[in-house]
Design a protein around this nucleic acid. Structure first.
Lengths: 340, 340
DNA sequence: TTGTATGCGTTATCAA
DNA sequence: TTGATAACGCATACAA
């Protein structure tokens, strides 16, 4: 009834507990040698008893939990499940499990995450954070927990970072619009206190500059990355009265959610997309393919990001040697669809 | 540098390790009484040292990990992140953490999940399974792991179940269509070897019966819950030639993904939705609000399901007494939108 | 009311 | 090559 322990295995195989441990951990490669005979006897006993090592006990002894944790701001944003899945795939191969934590993008919960992983003694964490400070990260590192950040926000902290080169991606998107002949390009920007909002605006500006188009602040509106407020911004940028006039012919929204809402508002007000206004977004969420017209956007590769992040973590966990800080960027993809 | 342990706290407070443990675990309610004075001294020491109990060690001792695990078939299906989030919210309140596992809907990975949680000694699991057998579940229970299943598939196993009354939901959906005057209602069914596919078809049939409409097998096509194959089914149900003729005036797709694809195919072939054909789905995924026309559907409440599931688990974990098997159903919601 | 001692299941160090 | 044995950090029965 009770789960068998190493002791049971040892008794059945007629050896000591230590020997069982040696066999299990394949010490045979190192200094400790086990006779093939006893080795097989032990293996046999393990088999018949259905013995499985207890992670908890092992963790206490080795100070390794074989547990990773990933914190994301919003699991219902389709970007993050993909990230989690990528992480999972990579972790699974090495028998690491993943604790998933939805911070709801609040400072309180992000803090709580830190406390939790500290007590749980997870081996490594993947952070998608908008609120943690360098000092929070330092606490983790101080406790021997490996850290990798997704996205640029913690660039300055001493941690590995996995990110998309968003600025370059936006630049490419802008080139696409310019190639299509657009000169008056509006931007529905994200909040400028977020790395994403800020860097995408920068890409927009550089894109204009590259095409020799002068920046016009009247063409830039700031949003929240959510649907709220988009209607007002659109109405301001595209006054119903001014149709056929000197209106912008293209709109770059800082993310797909806003872009899709923009399309809805525009068509609702009688604009044709893409004939009157070309619209593009950023993220390539699933809805981008459903919406009519389907949305031109930048596809990040969250799954690859998750995998990479775990890869970095496991590398550090696999060696004693210190590894220098790494910043890896994951390829993005310009997805051209009907909206431009 | 090293994390402080109870021993450090004890030394600083000038008491024994046991006393520290008593204080922490609030034994004061039980038989062991601690003087207010020493209690405060200990608390003070904990504070200044920044001591935090070590989950691992505690787990080894108590045989409780304070860890739950949830297995879902596909994290990129927006239903499941909500489920996870609901579970998380509930778990978080009692300081339980959640291991998330994406089984990719494969038997192999579902098995692997079982092995993993067994070794990890998680306290309870939430199962959304399409492949596990009763015996797999029995292994978990035998190991003292609490189990709750989401959805009807394990109804017959001896476990708690949280589910939506899908049959009743479909019935309500059918009533809605009938109220709108529809008599020829087609059904894009799900695979009949899945509980969802089967029960939704049953609801469809009962809905017809209730309205006194005779079942016509020519109006039922079987799909995969995915976009593939929908085009063919739609073309067969709504021959382009037969427009204006004796075609079905409504379509109930067994899930939103198929319904949305159906709308796309129908409009692509010149049918107007809902004027020529009313379309409805099941699940209320986010895209259901984005699609034009927006989709009438049944909204399950995955978040509530996750919360409920954790609730059942924690109840069992909170008491020694055996609790009888419970089947709880979570309210659904008929969401009427533009497509009908 | 507090302290002593033991064990949870492992791994790893030392002898044998 | 193998076997005792001591931690790992904590909770608790029992003794004081």
């Amino acid at each position: 009834m009770r789960r068998p322990t190493q002791k049971d295995v040892a008794r059945l195989a007629g050896v000591s507990r230590a020997t069982v441990s040696y066999v299990i951990n394949g010490r045979s490669g190192g200094k400790v040698q086990i006779t093939e005979g006893t080795r097989r006897r032990v293996l046999k006993a393990i088999e018949t008893l259905g013995y499985q090592p207890d992670f908890t006990a092992r963790s206490l002894r080795t100070q390794r939990t074989h547990l990773l944790a990933i914190m994301v701001p919003d699991l219902t944003n389709p970007f993050y499940p993909l990230l989690v899945r990528g992480a999972q795939t990579a972790a699974d191969e090495q028998d690491y499990q993943i604790l998933v934590y939805d911070s709801d993008d609040t400072p309180t919960r992000e803090r709580k995450f830190v406390e939790t992983v500290l007590r749980r003694r997870v081996d490594g964490v993947i952070l998608v954070t908008f609120h943690l400070q360098t000092e929070d990260v330092m606490r983790l590192i101080g406790a021997g927990i490996q850290v990798v950040a997704i996205g640029g926000r913690l660039r300055t902290a001493q941690v590995d970072v996995v990110a998309t080169r968003e600025r370059l991606a936006v630049l490419e998107l802008m080139r696409h619009l310019v190639d299509r002949g657009h000169r008056r390009i509006a931007h529905l920007a994200g909040p400028q206190d977020t790395a994403a909002g800020e860097v995408r605006l920068r890409g927009y500006c550089e894109g204009l500059a590259e095409a020799g188009i002068s920046y016009d602040e009247a063409l830039v509106r700031y949003g929240t990355f959510r649907r709220e407020g988009v209607r007002d911004s659109i109405t301001a940028l595209f006054p119903p009265a001014g149709k056929g006039d000197h209106h912008p012919t293209a709109l770059f929204a800082a993310n797909d959610v806003m872009a899709i809402e923009a399309i809805r508002v525009l068509t609702g007000q009688g604009w044709r997309v893409p004939e009157d206004v070309a619209v593009c977004g950023f993220d390539n969420i699933p809805a981008a393919t459903f919406v009519r017209p389907s949305l031109t956007t930048i596809g990040q590769n969250p799954q690859a990001m998750g995998q990479q992040a775990v890869g970095l973590l496991l590398e550090r966990l696999g060696t004693e040697e210190p590894i220098e800080i790494r910043h890896v960027s994951v390829p993005y993809q310009l997805v051209i669809r009907a909206s431009t």
